[in-house]
Structure formats: C-alpha cells, structure tokens
Design a protein around this nucleic acid. Structure first.
Length: 546
RNA sequence: GCGCCCGUAGCUCAAUUGGAUAGAGCAACGGACUUCUAAUCCGUAGGCUGCAGGUUCGAGUCCUGCCGGGCGCGCCA
C-alpha cells in the first residue's frame, strides 16, 4: 500500500533506512527524478548528511545500500558520482500505481481550513482588461486547486460603486448621451473617455429618449450613475462568465460603513494607539510597526475616509468571517501597498500568516510584430472580452495560466488563436482526444481491458510514463504551496509529450496481442484520467474528439 | 534617490526550490502517414544562464556590488 506520490514513498523508505542504519533522523535531503541514465529516482541523502555524521558521503551511501537493497520496492540501488544514490523501482510498484489512476484520480488531502481568494475586484467603471484576465485566471485556478485538496474556498470580488469615480462615470455617460443628440458637453478631467460608453448611451437613449439632454442636476446624476454602474457590472460579470470564472461573493466597499465594521476597525486602531491627528487629517501609524514605512492618511481633511481605511476595515471583516488565511491577488503596481496592509493586520491584532498577497506582473498583447500596450487611462486598451472572443475560453485560460505570475506575460494572440500544433492548448487536448479515440477503436475490436494485469508494461517509455504519473500529487501540492498555476500546464504538457511520443512508436491496439493491448490501453486511460483532471483544474475542456 | 519584480538558445518560456550532461516550443535544416487522428512523431543545429566577486562537495537557483528592463514611492483607486 502506498499513496499516489511515489517520490514521498521513496523518501520515507530511505529515511527509515537511514534511521535503522545510524540511529538518527537524517537532516533534510531530497528525492528527485535524475537525468537520463541514473535510474528512476535519486537522492542526495549521503552528501547532505556527511557533516552531520562526520562520515564520507560514499561511506554513508554504502551503509545505506545494504538495508535498502533488502526492500522489495527497489529493484536496484546504485551509488554514483560524489555520493548520489540511484534507484530503480520494481515493476510491481508501477503496476500498483497505474491501477489506481485507471480507477480514478485521487487528490492529496491537505487541510479543510477556510481560505479566501480575492481577485479582479475591478470597480464597475469600464470593461475588464486583459490584465484583469490574468488575475482572474490565476485566482480561479488556485481556488480550484485549493478546493481539490480539501480547503473550504471562497472566491471574492471586492468593489466600490460609490464616490467620486462613479460620479465621473455617470457624467461621462451623460456626455456621450448628449453627443447622440448633437449636443456637445465637455468631459471633466477624471471622466472616462473610452468610447465604450457610446453603446451604453445609445441603450440609455432607447429606454429614456431625449428627456435629459442638456439637463444636469443631482437627480439626473443619480440616474446616470446607477444606469452606467449596472451596465458596467453586467458587462464585467458577463465577461467573467465567458471564461468560467464565478465568484461566491461580491463584496461592496460601502457595506463596510453600513455594518459598522469601519467603526470597529477605528476603535481597535485607536485602542492600540495607532492613530493620530495631524493637519486636520487622521493618520495610521504604519511606522510604529514597520519603522521604514511612512504613516498613511486614513481620514481626509474633508472628512472622507481613504481607500486604505476601507481596506483595513475590509481585512477586519474577512478575519471576522472566520477565514484562516486570505489571499489578495494584485498586479505589480500594487506592491507598494503590501507593507501598510501588513502593518494594518498587525494593528488589528490579526495573526501572522492571515494576510497573503500573490503578485503578478503585467500583460502585453502581441499580434504579428505589433505589441499592444495597455492604457486604461487614455481609453486605449484591449478588453478581455475581445480577447476571449478571438481566441476562445480554453486558450485564454491556458495562456494566462501557463506563465509564472511573477514574469511579464506577452500574450501571443496569433499563437493562441491558431489551431495548429504549436499551440500548447491543442497539443494537450489532442492527447486526451487521442486516448478517447483509442478506446473507441479497442472497443470496436473487442479488446477487453477490464482485467488487464499490467505486467507487460516494461518498455522504458512505459515506465517513464508511469513514474511521471507518480508525480501528480507533488504537482498539485507545489502548485498550491507556491501559487504557481503554470505547474499544472507544464505537467499536462509533459505528460502529453510522453504520450504522443509513446503512441507514435508503439502500437496500442493490436488484435494479435490482446493481453499487451489491454495493458497499454490501461496506461493510456491513466494518462487520459490525469489529463482530464489537470485540465479541469485549469478550467479547460477535455474534448473527446478534435 | 529609495523599494519590489525580472534578466536563461534568434523569439516565447522550463529547469523537480542547492544536484549529475541547463531543457521544450516557435523560427532554420533534414526525415516519418497503403498501419490506432500528421493538431502527431524522430533527427540536426543553436548557451560564458546580463557582468564581477563570494558562500560549498556542487550555484541558473543563495549573499554582495554593478549593468539593463518593468512597476511603485498621493489626503487616486
């Protein structure tokens, strides 16, 4: 009996042998898949424990070798180089592993803690940009992964639909509306000049006619603000829906003031002496907690709270809702915000580890040789919706997920759009479709794989694929621990690569050799099950045929 | 000026978190379909991992200093 992670199992066996041989627990070592030609797994245990035991690495390895060779699991153990130990596993280990993946794909169970991912959180002043798209996919994929390993996950969208910017939005719509009737009204400085409001204005005019042309007062403003806001929010939600990103909670900033959370936050800050008055404004003493940081205004001279203060209250709210950890997914432009939020957490008496930020760098689009830069301010940007409509949901999700959030993403629109081999999305999906097609073929030929023994899977390529299946759980866990969705893409891609290669050089379905066929089909089913699982974590479809 | 992130093949990116010979795809060149989907496979070529030091059995990975790029340093959100 073993879990689905071969590596962990190998690790434990080595660790136990070490204890038996030396009467001590080993210091940290690793078990890894070595380069070609050094066996199935290798460990550096002898080298990293040399100092600890005051013995030469190769001598340690020699002593371990004796006890390890007695374990049935290992077919072969060798010592190489400066003291690496290389292992080959028995075929039966791989057979047992594969049989589990043929049945179904089990996730490692980690924890059931309540955690929250908050992302996108764009205010309803315009359409989502491709930058939001990256954030949406990173957040959604991580949420799916955390859910899969047992966490109680909430996806949350925080927004502010009150205040200055909403008034600017309403006014901008009104300007566009007037223009429809040939009346020139001027934009204010902070207005939204993107032409996306033209359509909204047309819609408005078809519902309300010309009743508000040339008229601007508080009543009119309220109408235009709420109309524009609703339309923008509909638009945003509709776009998110197109990429299968669904939030559990839409959280309004203004609700913090209605429920008294802001008052409570202020009380706590004051009680801890983190608040002071200066120049008619109220400050939060960030420097009291982080001496290198500057203090920040939380209540303006005009009496209005700052965005930062709302965020403090919002964090308190999250904490009170019982989350053990919350993750904020932020673009690189927000990194300066991290220290002050950490200070706020401290001042609120929230334990370390609660507040976490997952940062991602910016996105540029590339089409041909043309690089499209994003600038929301100037009203020039590609909307997420346009992108999705051009390349489709699957490619959009894959491309946003496939790079380390920490690197700049150049989204190659032409590549994402192409249905050719160079497109990694299709490459992976094709592997899945191929297996399905194989199964159909085998079924037609009357090959029964239900009772496959798996004993004929002895080719290096077959061992390699099975060993790689044994990495599945590791991949899930490191995706979660490191907040790196691209690990899923890389894993699915590599598995597909191994499969395609195997498929090309070996006949899977062969009526002349039914037993072998049954075994090979089982291997393919394992591949298919894992691919489908990983793709679903990425939110990408697994087509049966292409 | 200060802070954060990045720098790997011509291009876009990996590299099992300190491991053995730094790997893929695209682009270039050459092969494989009377055979389970050629949206595939196989091969050739391509590198001082930005530069210089340091830490150790061992560095693309960790530390220091430079160079180059991105972002930030509001009583904006």
């Amino acid at each position: 009996m073993f879990k689905l992670s071969l590596r962990t199992e190998v690790y434990n066996k080595i660790s136990n042998s070490f204890f038996e041989a030396f009467g001590k627990k080993p210091v940290d070592f690793v078990v890894e898949i070595p380069p070609e030609g050094f066996g199935d797994y290798s460990t550096n245990i002898a080298m990293v424990n040399a100092k600890f035991l005051r013995m030469a690495p190769r001598q340690i390895a020699n002593e371990l070798l004796e006890s390890l060779t007695k374990i049935k699991w290992f077919k072969n153990v060798e010592i190489a180089g400066p003291g690496f130990m290389n292992f080959k596993l028995s075929e039966s280990v791989y057979q047992e592993l594969l049989s589990k993946f043929v049945d179904n794909v089990e996730f490692p169970k980690f924890d059931e803690e309540k955690v929250q991912f908050e992302f996108v959180s764009a205010n309803p002043t315009g359409p989502l940009t491709v930058g939001h798209g990256r954030q949406a996919i990173i957040g959604d994929v991580l949420a799916r992964v955390y859910k899969s390993i047992g966490y109680d996950v909430t996806r949350e969208y925080y927004f502010n639909d009150a205040g200055k910017q909403m008034k600017a939005l309403g006014h901008s719509l009104w300007v566009r509306y007037n223009a429809l009737y040939g009346r020139k009204e001027n934009f204010e400085e902070d207005d939204y000049k993107g032409d996306y409001l033209v359509n909204v204005a047309q819609k408005f005019s078809s519902e309300y006619g010309d009743a508000y042309v040339g008229q601007w007062d508080e009543r009119v403003q309220t109408l235009f603000v709420s109309y524009a806001r609703d339309k923008m929010f509909d638009w945003i939600k509709n776009t998110l829906d197109k990429i299968d990103v669904n939030f559990d909670v839409y959280f309004s900033e203004s609700s913090l003031y209605k429920t008294g959370t802001t008052d409570e936050a202020m009380r706590i800050l004051k009680a801890g002496n983190y608040v002071y008055e200066k120049d008619g404004t109220t400050w939060f003493a960030v420097s009291k907690i982080l001496p290198k940081e500057e203090d920040r205004v939380i209540i303006r001279k005009n009496g209005e709270p700052t965005y930062f203060f709302s965020d403090i209250a919002y964090m308190l709210d999250k904490y009170k809702r019982g989350f053990k950890r919350v993750y904020y997914i932020w673009g690189a432009d927000h990194h300066g915000y991290v220290p002050r939020m950490q200070a706020a957490a401290k001042a609120l008496g929230i334990p370390d580890g609660f507040f976490n930020v997952i940062m991602h760098q910016f996105v540029t689009l590339k089409s041909g040789d043309e690089v499209v830069r994003m600038s929301k301010r100037q009203g020039e940007f590609t909307t997420l919706e346009d992108l999705v409509e051009r390349v489709g949901k699957d490619a959009t999700r894959y491309f946003f997920a496939m790079l380390d959030p920490n690197t700049h993403l150049v989204f190659d629109v032409d590549l994402a759009e192409s249905k050719k081999m160079e497109n990694p999305v299709y490459y992976v999906q094709y592997a899945h479709a191929r297996v399905v097609s194989l199964l159909k073929n085998a079924q037609e030929k009357g090959i029964n794989w239900e009772n496959a023994t798996l004993k004929n899977l002895t080719l290096p390529a077959e061992i390699d694929i099975m060993r790689f299946m044994g990495e599945f759980q590791e991949v899930i866990i490191s995706t979660a621990n490191e907040y790196k969705p691209q690990k899923l893409c890389n894993y699915a891609y590599s598995l597909s690569e191994k499969f395609h290669s195997y498929y090309n050089s070996n006949k899977i379905v062969d009526v002349k050799n039914r037993e072998l066929s049954a075994d090979r089909i089982s291997l393919c089913i394992g591949v298919k099950n894992i691919l489908r699982t990983v793709l679903s974590l990425l939110g990408i479809s697994s087509p049966d045929s292409m």
